[in-house]
Design a protein around this nucleic acid. Sequence first.
DNA 1: CCATTGCGTAACCAAATGGTTACACATATA
DNA 2: TATATGTGTAACCATTTGGTTACGCAATGG
Lengths: 124, 124
Amino acid sequence: MVTHILVTGRLQVIKVRRDVFQAIADPTRRAIINMVAYQSMNLNTVAENFDISRPAISKHIKILTECGLIVIKQQGRERYCEAHLQQLQEVNEWTTHFKTFWTQKLDALENFLEQDTNKPTENK
Amino acid sequence: MVTHILVTGRLQVIKVRRDVFQAIADPTRRAIINMVAYQSMNLNTVAENFDISRPAISKHIKILTECGLIVIKQQGRERYCEAHLQQLQEVNEWTTHFKTFWTQKLDALENFLEQDTNKPTENK
DNA sequence: CCATTGCGTAACCAAATGGTTACACATATA
DNA sequence: TATATGTGTAACCATTTGGTTACGCAATGG
């Protein structure tokens, strides 16, 4: 079911059928994205880079297409995976809101914290 | 099992037992993060803002603590959820790598795409 | 001291996830 | 035309996920 409709740039309508946060939760899918980001690649070539079976990769790619991160271009019997990573903007913006948490080292919160982390009391 | 050990700022060691990408995949957990980011809140108060049960929220918060995004401060019988969002840096950086995908509107790829999206042929 | 509040957790459950093997089928290719 | 290649998908499976209710227990407050 369509959960979002976003219009990017020039009337390019992308129907998102799946939460992009959930799509990138899986490490294999992130690896696929890294792999095809700057070089389109057919499905079998992608699959050869992993230990899991070709159908498993096929499923992952299907999920990525469902949220628009990958677009398939059929070419003869081959299907090329093209990265369309505009959807990652949502993730980038959400995390950017919290950028102060890792850029400001010594805000009041961390000062407070350091009081109990001075002694690195540890667990197992 | 500990999957990462990161040292931030001043010898503050965070043991990450869970992938942060997976932790933020759930919309409820993202809502919790938004809620406590700038104002610590005890668990029951967090739970009151959701339709799901208090134990369900408790589980979500446990997951968030397992990847270091939230730290619990016990205060009497109450447990305050404090946001420690440094881990989101990993997500922010990964998505930032692909920023050109949504900032450069007219790279060769999109030009090509517009050829087939000019007519918004549609599906349901 | 007793009731209430705030919380963790166990036990349970349905659905989603991530993998597999087996098969079908269209496109290349010899 | 026969075979090999590239791929989707069905059927199946174990595990994980996200929720519930029920219970226990320490801290608070009357």
